[in-house]
Design a protein around this nucleic acid. Structure first.
Length: 133
RNA sequence: GGAGCAGGCCAGGCGGUCGCUGCGAGUUCGGGAAGCCGAAUUUCGGGGAGGAAAGUCCGGGCUCCACAGGGCGCGGUGGUGGGUAACGCCCACCGUCCGUGAGGAUAGGGAAAGUGCCACAGAAAACAAACCGCCGUAUGGGCUUGCCUGUGCGGUAAGGGUGAAAAGGUGCGGUAAGAGCGCACCGCGGUGCGGGUGACCGUGCUGGCAGGGUAAACCCCACCGGGAGCAAGACCAAGCAGGGGGAAUCGCGGCCGUUGGCAACAACAGCCGCGACGGAUCGGCCCGAUCCGUUCGACCUCCGGGUGUGUCGCUCGAGGUGAUGAGCGAUCAUCAUCCUAGAUAAAUGACCGCUCUCGACAAAACCCGGCUUAUCGGCCUGCUCCGCGU
RNA sequence: GGCUCCGUAGCCAAGUGGCUAAGGCAGUGGAUUGCAAAUCCACCAUCCCCGGUUCGAAUCCGGGCGGAGCCU
């Protein structure tokens, strides 16, 4: 179901600024929508953004480590999104929050990102959006 | 060969693919008469974290505020000389302590200006002191008749014991026993001479000795110190509500005007000056100074509301590298040469291959100089001690 | 990024440089009771860590670690 969006163009796996959440005004609605899913390594918030693309924002707690550790987690998450962005549902704003340091790797983040985002996408599609808005 | 001391340096490398950032060029679009300006970019090129970027412990630059003055306080530093923009940093030297040594450590002014404190133990802990002991003497007792012992008075700081600390240490003489009582050496105080810019060192004479510790206790002395910090600050745009509450809410004098009045004068309004009160600033307090206010209001203060976006500040600097010269050194001078991160939900990563010593601690956020703390492994230079051989 | 403050038992905390570091709540053990509650007794401390000053440090000084708060 994700193949219909990108069939003709050669997929450039870039990661420009237009696919990131940048300001507090971008982040606050995602948190307030309270639609989230997580496994042991990653926590994902989602909100439909009425665009053709999916954007992500990152939030890394200071409890996970020093600046070097936190920067590495952010780079791994960006790389995971960059490599899997055409296998993800479209039209969402996602906030990614890593919750564990020792299990962090590119492969596990790619798998978690795909599984959790599709799970959230199904939850947003199938029921009418009756929960608290 | 082993053990060690001091100083300096490196912080995996190479190649390929994808991706991020900002700079330059190109292309496209828009504006303009043009130089050019703005935007986009899935085009190209080269640049892109540290020795500690960290902790925020000191010192400066820079920015805004303040910038009559005086007194009292407050904080910091503390051997001497030098270096520096400055420092609590660095260098050299001095003293003390530690180490066989190379070397290391050092908040290292004043206790003879004053105040405070010194628990427990101990006889006594500060205008110092006699518990045990030792010695002399007076007197009593015992008996083996020259010894033992009790009490009083006096002498004594050598010995015991307490303590972190008890009137300088060792030796000889001396004495009833002792004691700087005397002498020698060491220590200490005073004084002279010599050396050194100085801290201080050496030495002569002299005094038998003054005096506990603690100033990272108060304090004294000397020197230094305005406050806040790039979330400083400036500009542009957008937007909200110049919203609500509170304290204080006078007096005298002069001038002029209006009204009333024959006039004296009275009432009202305005301006000026002085005082009082209130507020702000002068880092804290007091004096004092300046400014503002005293009835729509302004200022102050409290509670709220909006924006919390863009541009500048933002990287050429007490800068790096090299050479020469001055200096023991820290460092400085001259010349040549180079431009080497400027992000803003915040840029350096992922994958593959080869290779080595198999990679630690750790991410700029205005910029520098230091200190401190973390740190795998390795390299270089100089030096010390021990053992063996020549 | 900058500024300020705080660390004492599981929790709340007092503590002029000097006794075995007060006290309350909780916990454990015991006494009391027919059994409990209440009460009484006892136990429970790396004074955040490392150095220094001092005869002696929870206290004074320096460094580190951890945790809060404020500033656009």
């Amino acid at each position: 179901m994700s193949e219909d969006t990108t069939t003709s163009k050669p997929q450039r796996q870039g990661f420009p600024k237009s696919s990131r959440l940048l300001t507090r005004a971008d982040f606050e609605p995602v948190y307030r929508f309270r639609c989230k899913a997580g496994d042991g390594t990653l926590l994902v918030f989602a909100l439909p953004n009425h665009r053709t693309s999916t954007r992500i924002g990152l939030s890394v707690s200071k409890k996970l480590g020093n600046a070097v550790v936190r920067n590495r987690l952010k780079r791994l998450l960006r790389e995971a999104f960059r490599l899997t962005q055409f296998d993800l549902p479209t039209g969402l704003d996602l906030v990614l929050i890593p919750t564990a340091v020792d299990k962090a790797s590119l492969v596990s983040y790619q798998q978690s990102l795909k599984r959790l985002s599709w799970k959230l996408d199904r939850r947003l599609q199938t029921p009418p959006p009756e929960p608290a808005t």
